[in-house]
Write a protein that binds this DNA or RNA. Structure first.
Lengths: 234, 234, 234, 234
DNA sequence: AATGAATGAGGGTTCATTCAT
DNA sequence: TATGAATGAACCCTCATTCAT
């Protein structure tokens, strides 16, 4: 084909549009929930018609499933990265959540349809639940690892994971891109908070007060110092 | 009339039924979300007909509003109690969340429709949002107080409150009464977690390791030791 | 029975209440139409409950039928009187309409459910239609009589009757008791108008201008001069 | 594109269908009243489904409003024409009513939903009432004009207008296209009747009897002589 | 006689989905 | 590829009616 590289191929165009549809739908799902979202509304915001969506997805539920899959894919990718590079349970966990959060906050990304898992079609649900459970189990394993290696405070891993996921999954419903924080700032702030909630290390402020007596802390926990706000344009 | 105090009066019966309807609806809202909940389903689970519900609530949205109001009432009650009795910002905050959580987990109670605020009728929304914002502002003030009095680690109060609320409000969607934990255990576990996430004090486990050197901690924070599971009957 | 004549008997009470229900329902039917009228509304205005109505009428449609019957009874009564006392077709017709109108305007009376004949139950409809048709036929006969005796202008009796009934039956929908006219004034004004519309006699004002030349008119037509307003209290 | 002018364009098709829906609904409203009319029924008679209607009108009430608007538009058009061309109050009035009636009787037209004004949505009602009141006021002004110029008998304009409107608006409820009269005949007959009811001129039959003595009448009133029936096919 | 509770039928409306163009 | 038309399922809600008290 001529126009090489310049004019996008037909299939490129198709997947670009598909992607746009998915993004728009995901944002709607995040904001209003699956059932309150209408295809009409999604289409209108894209400047297309409702039926055009059906060229890219077989039905509404497929949009949800695609969201779910993407989130889970990102989750497992983060998990792999974190497991490979983290030095102890807590650090691994922090890496997972930081990556997960960054993914959620990325405007381009599909999002926390995790909240809407119940809306999946029965045939998709089993697989989705299995994936999600696998992810949660992996996270729990990291907690246990952290408890073992002393980086995480003794606790119930299941409860902790649900709590942290609650905090994280909730973000897309209240975070506004044009709001007070940049995505980066938010991710950092949340990560610190989550980290503190399970760390065996005293919080930084305390560390400073105690360090004269005895060196405490693993250093790694200060790896993400608060950066000055790099606010996006409104 | 005899049967005094024993046989419930007519109006008592009415409000008991009303309460039952509200509870059932709330559970459905929590599990599936507002829009995915059908009055038919709620009625069926109560063994009544759809229209019977209309004897107790004028419409579906009124159920949502009633949920919301109840949650907020409990929230403010906790806030008052905590403000009066807490000794510092962090302790106050912990009391608020502990009470809030207990309320959410109470089987008798209506629940976290907070997640579904967008589904409120336009005329109710303004008031509901105002109430909710007032509550969140109060929580943020507690965080600031805690930062000032040194009980809470320096942080962005807004972000912290949203994170903690996310963790807490998410609970009713995954907590099962007949599950692994009693409500009390859950409340305790969550409280400890939330508390750790903002505390300037080193975590208990660390404290033990450090206490030989220097006494640290405010004592109060161990006021709620993990009790042996008092599991409810399924 | 004691309390003779003073305390009304049980059955008197019953029929008085029945009457009250019928009146209220009739007014609602007149104002809003049968289908837009709810028994709840009728009951509320009477200060009773919806179910109480069922002590006096077996169902909503029976109220409509009762209205209809009453109107038709009055109509036939007027017809008899008018036929007996009127001196010619036109005069008879005028008497019928005047009486009919008076009945419609009587606050105590049930009313123009004629407009809602289609809402009657199928089993009642046949009878009701028969009655109504009989009445309309009688009116047409009067028109024909009037044409024959020269008191009514040549015209299509059917059309004329429908037109006059339209004008008359429409009254209850716009007439307000607390409005500008007394019932009497309205009845008089309408009668004059209806009369003029079919009369072979020149209108009064013309008569005055012509009477110098030749005596015209039947005298009877001036039998109901406009009286000064005797307004009812609000 | 070929088929020019012959095959209707897409948008023409749309508005033709819209028109068909409106007509069918209007007929139902006229026959049974607004509340007794179901969209299901309207659709069935059109051979479509209930929901198809929603492609052309946002809801049931919009159908009513469209009817109302069309009637009022025709009313004002007639008013303008009559005011411009009528020679005196009575003649103007007659022209208005004749035109109005013709419109009502036109099979293609939407009709006398005037009777159902109370069923309009609250937000539409104010405007509709204002329009209707403006029309009625204009008619009353014509009556007053007629009284002043001697063409109309002294009377209460308000009462007269309500009576005449009653007679006219009632027509669509009983007139059947496949009945005894053509629309033209009916319009003529009704017009004569209405005219007689307010005219200062002696009726034609009387005129003939009197004219030997003195010439009376304005000539114009005989402008619409009864034409021989031109019956439409059933 | 009167009531509150409850029901079932039915109507308006929304919305995902299909079809023909 | 994209659209407008059309459909059917489902839901909320109203209301006449019945029943037990």
């Amino acid at each position: 084909m001529s126009w090489n590289q310049i004019v996008p191929s037909v299939s490129e165009l198709h997947s670009a549009k598909r992607r746009a549809v998915l993004r728009e739908a995901a944002q709607a799902f995040n904001r209003q929930g699956y059932h309150a979202t209408t295809l009409e509304g999604v289409a209108k915001r894209l400047g297309i018609t409702k039926t055009a969506i059906y060229h890219y997805f077989p039905n509404k539920n497929a949009l949800l499933k695609a969201c779910f899959d993407e989130v889970m894919d990102a989750a497992f990718a983060n998990l792999a990265e974190a497991t490979a590079n983290g030095r102890n349970g807590r650090e691994k966990l922090r890496r997972v959540f930081a990556g997960y959060l960054t993914h959620l906050l990325d405007a381009l990304t599909v999002a926390v349809v995790v909240l809407e898992d119940g809306a999946l079609a029965p045939e998709d649900r089993r697989g989705a639940y299995a994936k999600r459970d696998r992810f949660e189990r992996a996270l729990r394993a990291l907690v246990e690892e952290g408890i073992s290696d002393g980086s995480i405070v003794p606790c119930d891993p299941k409860l902790v994971i649900m709590a942290l996921l609650g905090a994280v999954n909730w973000v897309p419903r209240w975070y506004r891109q044009d709001g007070e924080w940049s995505a980066e700032q938010l991710a950092t702030g949340m990560s610190e908070l989550l980290d503190r909630s399970i760390s065996t290390q005293p919080p930084r402020s305390l560390v400073r007060r105690v360090k004269d007596i005895k060196a405490v802390g693993d250093g790694a926990r200060d790896a993400t110092p608060r950066k000055p706000a790099k606010r996006k344009s409104p």
